[in-house]
Design a protein around this nucleic acid. Sequence first.
DNA 1: TGGTTACTTAACCTAATGGTTAGGTACGGG
DNA 2: CCCGTACCTAACCATTAGGTTAAGTAACCA
Lengths: 117, 117
Amino acid sequence: MVLLSMATDPLGLTFSALADPTRRAIVARLAQGEATVSQLAEPFDMSSPAVSKHLKVLERAGLVEKGREAQFRPRRLKPEPLRDLSGWLESYRQFWDAKFDSLDAYLKEIQNKDTPQ
Amino acid sequence: MVLLSMATDPLGLTFSALADPTRRAIVARLAQGEATVSQLAEPFDMSSPAVSKHLKVLERAGLVEKGREAQFRPRRLKPEPLRDLSGWLESYRQFWDAKFDSLDAYLKEIQNKDTPQ
DNA sequence: TGGTTACTTAACCTAATGGTTAGGTACGGG
DNA sequence: CCCGTACCTAACCATTAGGTTAAGTAACCA
């Protein structure tokens, strides 16, 4: 059921891939250009199999693509899932766009003056 | 560690809240106006405690707010996390924006000339 | 050819997720 | 005041997620 829905729910795959901070850091790194697994693993205090697993999750979501060059398997970022995510978000623009809820925006203005949060 | 990072990682909370299709459906429903728990539960083939749990996840992410009116606890959608998500996405616009693709390819060309290791 | 580097796979562990049922609490109506 | 409706909490269960170590494959290098 989860298995099934996940397999047929690309948006869900994307969201859950990006839910992990390690994976978002990998995405951030790959946004600056392709990188090998070792390079991607270097900043993290975790084993390389763990990084491999994270990469597999990103690949399953279509966010990352694996290349092969000699003994290296360079990864690069793929734009499509991010584009899809943006499309989904866009359908809620009326909610997070300040113009929509002027009262909400106004309250927030006030609040932002000294919100400790 | 997961506990800790999640507590201090609002973006991660948002992504994982939205990873579940039931929760995205709830968000879609709430985008049309506030609704009670029973109203939200109605379309789903699952117990109401299950729906309550989903709502708690959405609330923890700040996506949903709980009101109280007599015996009802109407939920409404909050825009902030969606706005934050949009901000995060925006920082990757260069990747999913089609116009940028050719430049991206060009940068990759250059980079491959002297990639160490 | 044998060692080293790069990476993956397998087996395992713990904790979180997503569901259940059963048993609360709180409110409004007859 | 009691009953039904609305909702939440607790306890439990199965599966998934995220990490580990150990062992495997593959390519380069001396």
